[in-house]
Nucleic acid binder design. Structure first.
Length: 415
RNA sequence: GAUGGAGUGGCUGAGUGGUUGAAAGCGCUGGUUUCGAAAACCAGUAGUUGUGUUAAACGGCUCGUGGGUUCAAAUCCCACCUCCAUCGCCA
């Protein structure tokens, strides 16, 4: 949610920023300002009448005043109906606007994304390399068939060393964040409609979420949904900022529609595990925090020795709430491409405004915090990347050094 | 799931229709006193929003949330949420 006051003050700048990500025909700030003018007009009128009524309600009024106040009450109700209608319309129009983007974010869609960093090289596989689905199945790490029997397509079960590898990854991530003094949260996995709305996933992603309709709850698609709500309607202690969290949750996504053949296996499933980093900062500190989160996410992938690129997204490819996003994409040889393993984003005050999360600044004014999030990391693409990038000619997979201590010092999968 | 109780300012806690945005205490801030401190005493101390130059001043709204009754609601009515207690159920 953008600040109507800022729209009023910096209309030109905001317009210019928004046009980087949406079409001119979808943008009408003048209409929004006009609605706000109208809102104020009604508000003033209503408040004046209310003041009049309050004055005569201080003491017991006589019969004549009661009659007059009754008429006044009806007038107030009538005006209020108009006021509420305008307020709703304004709210809806404001909610439909995406966030502004940072200056350095370029206009346009995916085609304008820019690689800003490349780590390591593509591994040289001087033999007939297998894809991760075959590797996982041949090595007995993942059971796709029985998972489908139990739960249908789009699910898998980790078994044996596969489960240990998954567990090792999560431990490796969690330990890293713990050592950086982030606070660990294991949130509930089901959330209310209100929370999904606050996190910005409703109404847009309604069909991408799993619903426990009887209880009016939905399964979280990312713990970002929970973390964004964690301090909803709170006044944070200024001294406590920045608040740094990492949360583990299983994530559930309907991913309705069929997958492309290349997205077989665990590249895109209904359920996966992810640790998410999240920060609540003072406005002045959010870009420093952004760099920190990016560094942490990159360190995690680098610690596993995986070849990846960091990509700065163009305005149209960032999700609506985000002012800037950098994706970390890991190399999946069998796909001859890179797949996202982390998305590092700064929402500025866009989410905080929706969630009403504020702090009292040194000047005594209440201000909205800035929120940032970054995966740190999701396992479901790291796992395949490890299998494929670390596969050996004999069909085994070398386990990245950093994970071995979580797997009984095992060196190879399949040996 | 059932029954009962509760939800008031930073905290504790009064308040069942009319100058109550809210007693009192605690806490906090300033002052008096003191070499300094404590104690005591005095004064101040909710949020949000609107008009206004982010002044002064004035106004609206806010006693869990949302509706309703009334000229007037913290106070009466309805629904919901959360917490506590007891009972029931329980992978």
């Amino acid at each position: 949610m953008l600040d109507i006051k800022k729209i009023r003050e910096n209309k030109k700048d905001i317009e210019k920023s928004l046009l980087k990500r949406i079409d001119k025909k979808d943008l009408d700030l003048d209409k929004i300002l006009k609605l706000d003018d109208q809102r104020k007009e009604y508000l003033l009128e209503v408040e004046q009448l209310q003041a009049e009524r309050n004055k005569s309600s201080k003491t017991k009024p006589d019969a004549k005043t009661i009659k007059a106040m009754k008429a006044l009450g009806e007038k107030i109700n009538f005006l209020e109906a108009s006021l509420f209608a305008v307020e709703d319309e304004l709210q809806e129009a404001l909610a439909a606007l995406p966030n502004i983007v940072a200056d350095e974010v370029v206009a346009g869609g995916k085609e304008n994304n820019k690689i800003i960093k490349t780590f390591s090289d593509k591994p040289k596989l001087n033999f007939e390399a297998k894809n991760h689905v075959d590797l996982a199945t041949d090595l007995g790490l993942i059971d796709y068939e029985r998972a489908a029997k139990m739960s249908g397509a789009g699910f898998w079960a980790y078994i044996g060393d596969g489960a240990l590898l998954e567990w090792a990854l999560l431990n490796y991530f969690a330990d890293y964040h713990r050592d950086n003094n982030y606070t660990f949260i294991i949130p509930p996995y089901l959330l209310t409609e209100q929370s999904a709305f606050t996190s910005g996933h409703l109404p847009k992603f309604k069909d991408d979420l799993f619903w426990a309709t009887k209880d009016k709850l939905c399964l979280n698609a990312t713990s970002e949904m929970m973390l964004g709500n964690y301090h909803r309607d709170e006044m944070l202690d200024t001294k406590s900022l920045p608040l740094k969290y990492y949360a583990y949750s299983t994530c559930f996504r309907r991913e309705a529609g069929s997958y492309r053949a290349e997205e077989r296996g665990m590249i895109r499933g209904h359920q996966f595990n992810k640790i998410e980093m999240f920060q609540f900062t003072k406005p002045a500190d959010s870009w420093t925090a952004f760099d920190e989160l990016l560094k942490h996410a990159e360190n995690l992938v680098e610690g596993l020795g995986l070849h990846y690129t960091s990509v700065q997204l163009a305005a149209g490819d960032c999700s609506a709430a985000m002012a800037k996003t950098i994706d970390i994409e890991v190399w999946i040889p069998s796909m001859n491409g890179y797949k996202e393993v982390s998305s590092v984003s700064n929402a500025l005050d866009y989410q905080a405004r929706r969630g009403n999360t504020r702090f009292k600044d040194t000047d005594g004014k209440n201000k909205f915090v800035h929120t940032l999030n970054a995966s740190g990391l999701a396992t479901s693409r790291i796992f395949p990347a490890i299998l494929e990038q670390y596969q050996q000619a004999d069909g085994t997979v070398k386990i990245p050094e950093a994970l071995r201590k979580y797997m009984g010092d095992k060196e190879f999968l399949g040996k």
